[in-house]
């Protein structure tokens, strides 16, 4: 793992130009999660088995339609990493007992939303990491229980309105730092990505694919339905999440956290917030200066900390 892999994704033109994930899924138009997942699938390839938890993407495969060219297994909301454990162990046993050939092996990839990753599935994820399970975990994080209509989850950011946080200040709590929780387990790799930064995403998935052990990816997933914006804005909101510093692109490896894309100039967070209906109450009927500045202060404090480190 120590040898430095040289990325084949040096510039945008190196990104795959053909799409592996089949069209025709029931995800919403403009889904930022599906955008990230198809980009990830293009890099991982079809020698994969996706182990899925309950969430929006349960509906990727609806009998008899699947977008996958490889395999897929649905488990439950809480236990996708345990499903990955069973599949990985079984494949290892079959290889060891020479009942399958090496070329029949598959990479095991857990796919869950933030509801499972930040909450119900955290115990099974923690345990899979601690057991050193050789798997990739992809969390599409749309910051709420999106499949049921965007109720507050442990990934919901401060101030956002959800269908269960409807008052004038929005959600009073704070988004859980899942990256830090995962990294505290000292797995092989942890990274944040976003579909609107495909080159950064491709390099990270390429790196993760080449490693062994637990490799965990959180993809911030702009959600037109849950965040209330025009689907057309999906990629732009992703760009703004990065340019305002709200969604730091980073990776953890060998005990070190590295930020992979630090803008030379920051945009104010309100550029990101004001595009989304879930933050509309910060601007209408009158500007909630205190709350906007509280959100800005937290983002600034995060990056000040990064600079000090």
């Amino acid at each position: 793992m120590s040898e430095q892999t040289v990325t084949i994704y040096k510039r945008m033109k190196d990104l795959p130009s053909t799409r592996l994930l089949g069209a025709g899924t029931p995800m919403c138009a403009g889904c930022g999660g599906l955008q990230a997942v198809h980009e990830i699938y293009d890099i991982l390839g079809e020698k994969t088995v996706f182990v899925n938890a309950a969430g929006c993407m349960t509906l990727l495969a609806v009998y008899p339609f699947t977008p996958f060219r490889g395999s897929w297994l649905y488990t439950s909301m809480a236990s996708a990493p345990a499903g990955a454990q069973g599949v990985r162990d079984a494949l290892d046993i079959l290889l060891a007992k020479q009942r399958i050939k090496q070329e029949q092996d598959l990479d095991v990839v857990v796919l869950t939303g933030d509801g499972a990753a930040y909450g119900m599935g955290l115990s099974s994820t923690s345990s899979a990491i601690e057991r050193g399970l050789d798997f990739i975990y992809v969390c599409y994080d749309n910051e709420g229980y999106g499949n049921t209509g965007q109720q507050t989850s442990a990934a919901t950011p401060h101030g956002a309105r959800t269908s269960t946080s409807t008052d004038a200040r929005g959600f009073g709590g704070f988004k859980k730092d899942l990256f830090a929780i995962w990294a505290a387990h000292r797995p092989a790799y942890v990274a944040t990505v976003i579909g609107s930064e495909p080159l950064d995403l491709a390099r990270k998935i390429e790196k993760a694919k080449a490693m062994k052990g637990p490799r965990l990816i959180i993809a911030l997933s702009p959600c037109p339905t849950g965040w209330d914006f025009d689907p057309m804005e999906s990629a732009e909101i992703g760009h703004l999440a990065v340019k305002t510093g709200v969604w730091p692109l980073k990776e953890y490896e060998n005990g070190q956290v590295t930020h992979t894309k630090v803008p030379s100039e920051w945009l104010p967070v309100e550029e990101y917030l004001k595009k989304q209906g879930r933050f509309a109450h910060l601007f209408k009927p009158q500007r909630n200066k205190a709350l906007i500045s509280e959100i800005q202060t937290r983002v600034d404090a995060y990056w000040a900390e990064v600079e000090r480190a």
Partner: peptide, 19 residues
């Protein structure tokens, strides 16, 4: 079993109709 022994059958769903 509700299992799909095929690849990328989702292309048979014409989601273009949503447009």
């Amino acid at each position: 079993a509700a299992a799909i022994h095929a690849s990328a059958t989702s292309v048979e769903v014409r989601t273009g109709l949503w447009r």
